[in-house]
């Protein structure tokens, strides 16, 4: 049994391929999806998406919030933007994190603080996604 995974953004189709398993960060924690999963609708939180390919290799992608629907072994993830872990430059991600941290401490007013905190979270997730080591089994 396989899963069809579609990751769609307004810009392009990020992923359109069969997979074995995914781990998805939802608003109520991470969920693992295996074939024949119960049909659900869920909000996707900002966070990593782990994909196990047909050859048991793990891949990471980063999702910036969105929505997922799992029906009949078909997973549709809608998001404003998503990045594959392989497309992220580790050094650049680390630098972005440092800049974001500095911005939070400098922010004044509610609006700026909210914006800065969101930016910091994004940067942190990107760094985590790059540095993630897949489970060896």
């Amino acid at each position: 049994m396989k899963l069809n995974l579609y990751v769609l953004t307004p810009k392009r189709i990020i992923w359109d391929c069969e997979v074995k398993e995914i781990i998805l960060s939802t608003n109520s924690g991470q969920i693992g999806v295996l074939p024949n999963h119960a049909p659900i609708n869920t909000a996707v939180d900002m966070g990593p998406l782990r994909i196990r390919l047909l050859n048991d290799q793990w891949l990471t992608a980063v999702l910036w919030s969105g929505f997922a629907r799992i029906v009949n072994n078909e997973i549709i993830i809608l998001g404003n933007d998503a990045e594959l872990g392989s497309d992220i430059d580790p050094e650049e991600a680390q630098q972005a994190l440092e800049i974001a941290e500095a911005n939070v401490s400098r922010a004044e007013g509610t609006k700026e603080l909210v914006e800065a905190k969101v930016a910091l979270r994004r940067a942190r997730i990107r760094v985590e996604a790059v540095n993630w080591i897949p489970p060896s089994n």
Partner: peptide, 28 residues
């Protein structure tokens, strides 16, 4: 819509995730 589909979270939360997407696609 198939009626068996469950909502992982509160519908409010799911809409909360969907509407910004929608807002963004409108602006785009």
């Amino acid at each position: 819509f198939s009626p068996v589909v469950q909502f992982e979270q509160d519908p409010v939360q799911i809409l909360d995730a969907l509407l910004p997407l929608y807002l963004n696609s409108q602006i785009l």
